[in-house]
Design a protein around this nucleic acid. Structure first.
Lengths: 344, 344
DNA sequence: TACCCATCGTCAACCGCTTGCAATATATAC
DNA sequence: GTATATATTGCAAGCGGTTGACGATGGGTA
């Protein structure tokens, strides 16, 4: 179907090796030979076969991203950052939706390794067995995780937002708004990032001698909806909620509305992530901003750096800054209508 | 690094050809030989090199998706459908964000062709020059578009929602709600899908002897915001708006709120797409549902069908059904309409 | 026992490109 | 002019598989 090096070589009366060198701008080909080859390549509409090139060089110029679901705006934003960075470096990015299913993750990883991808961005390896984790980290392919891996396994790089700091920011903010009993809706203890957020939050709240009520459940909108309903029925003294992510905050808000209460008049709400939607819902959500796009970029940069450097030394770890974005879902307690503190 | 067929062959004392056949379950290998090979492969932790396999077979088992931006929830949903279908068929999907930039699109396409992807899903080829379109359609790689291509170019398959019907549904619904002057915010005429929506809408409205006001601008939330602001200042008699997509509906709603009006009390709003957000905003948006996930799946199914069948006959075209999802942003207009908000 | 045929396995070419090494052509030095 | 250094180019061996052609083996049948 396509024209190959051989065709060009025949056309120009030189060897395929020369053509290869000319096309790859390698030093050691006479100018005019090179011109001749380039002209012939253009004339024949030559398209190098990257599979062949990859086989010969051992490089696929491909990266992969194994996340739970691209429909989650967090991952979409991250993916965009990652893909932009890959594009700039001349790499492609393959997209894999795992739903966090261990079997899907394993199958993806195997296929990707067989395709000789040069790096993999995964949100977590928590679902894999220790043996599988070991195998992955020993595969020789750079891996970047978005979640702190078990301490037992070495070899994974990480890109994380400063979750602890984010939780602390949120807790501190609510305390300073005058709240004394603050609920925190979060997920299972094993979820590293969420655990960090909870820790930072608790530290801030309890450091101010206020009360932190930690409620655990599923870290989704639905889960938060349930948690919130229960919490509202049990504690009438809660005046603010910190949800471990924006989706949970939305779910919790729904429960608040369903109970006939208002946000922020009756209850202040703070989320985490700052997805686009946070600025669009009503009331706009106060939340902790995670630099999602930058995290995607950073992850790919690490992968590329490690892929091109043969020195498979120690993995890299990047901690990115978070910041509090104050919108209208939260307010200072004790209606002193002091509004200027609330503007973002 | 990895163990190869040769290693297994040596280990088992057979030829690599036999190993290859045994591993690929080809007829013609004795059971016990096969077992031996399989055992050795497992023992040596053999991982086939897909680049080599691809080079030999001419198949990469890879598909690609060139869209404008994965952060657009429409594409995220579509991508998920596409990727699921690809996964089930044992294919990978590479993600390309073009921002509709022609130069990026061209670069992506070239690289993808060089990587011998077996099919490409693109939202549109409208930005490419006729020559580039010609080249693409003649590349031998199946292409599925989400937008009707220029009639001049043959060879592209398409997967479309029934845009005309959707517009008609929206127009008809608003007319039946009693609206007599209905605005339609849309994009440039060249945008095929939007044009179809406008046509269906207009047909329904004018067929009922009501007035359709077509307003053109940029088909984004921002664009719609501007259009809506202008429209509100010019026509006091509009009681309903049909936006060509949900993002535009959100932007338009913002303009309505900014003008001190209410939805749906003062103005009914209908969108198109039914992105997740449509059910979450307040008021929840009445909109025309596009089966985005199914469109992604359908596109990949077409690609795969055409990739595996050598009969490069006529392209396939799928038209998927849309349906109206009525929520709270629209309502039946009472005989005595609530106009006082418009004079403020 | 001779012959036929189905089953297994091996050989070797090939997919398209890279790259170390050798061969040749050209330039520089003496 | 020859000797030597250097820039070009060609040769051929991979990279890791697949696959058609062909030979060997062994059971079944006449």
């Amino acid at each position: 179907m396509g024209t190959t090096l051989k065709d060009i070589a025949r056309e120009c009366g030189v060897d395929v090796a020369t053509v290869s060198r000319a096309l790859n701008e390698v030093y050691g080909v006479r100018r005019e030979t090179r011109q001749k080859v380039l002209a012939a390549a253009a004339r024949l509409n030559y398209r190098p076969n990257r599979l062949a090139k990859g086989l010969a060089t051992g490089r696929s110029h491909t990266l992969a991203m194994v996340i739970s679901d691209i429909r989650n705006p967090f991952f979409a934003e991250l993916a965009r950052g990652a893909e932009d960075a890959a594009y700039q470096a001349g790499y492609e990015l393959v997209l894999c939706n795992s739903d966090l299913s261990p079997s899907k993750q394993v199958r993806y990883i195997h296929t990707l390794l067989e395709k000789r991808v040069e790096g993999i961005l995964m949100n977590t390896v928590a679902g894999l067995s220790p043996a599988e984790q070991e195998e992955l980290s020993g595969s020789g392919v750079p891996i970047v995780l978005l979640n702190r891996p078990p301490a037992s396994i070495r070899g994974f790089s990480t890109v994380l937002a400063d979750n602890y700091e984010g939780g602390h920011l949120a807790g501190n903010y609510l305390v300073e708004c005058g709240h004394r009993v603050i609920g925190h809706l979060t997920g299972p203890r094993e979820h590293g990032n969420l655990a960090e957020r909870a820790k930072g939050f608790q530290k801030a709240v309890e450091g101010a001698r206020a009360t932190a009520l930690i409620v655990r459940g599923h870290h989704s909108g639905e889960g938060a909806y349930e948690m919130m309903k229960k919490l509202l029925s049990q504690r009438k003294d809660v005046t603010a909620i910190f949800a471990a992510n924006d989706a949970m905050a939305f779910g919790a808000m729904r429960a608040v509305f369903d109970a006939g209460l208002r946000v922020p008049e009756d209850l202040s709400m703070v989320g985490f992530d700052n997805v686009e939607l946070a600025g669009i819902v009503r009331p706009p959500l106060t939340t902790v901003h995670q630099p999602k796009y930058e995290m995607g970029r950073a992850a790919v940069e690490i992968l590329l750096r490690r892929a091109t450097r043969p020195d498979h030394s120690t993995p890299e770890h990047r901690l990115l800054e978070v910041k509090l974005v104050v919108r209208e879902s939260s307010r200072i307690l004790k209606g002193r209508r002091n509004q200027q503190g609330l503007s973002s």
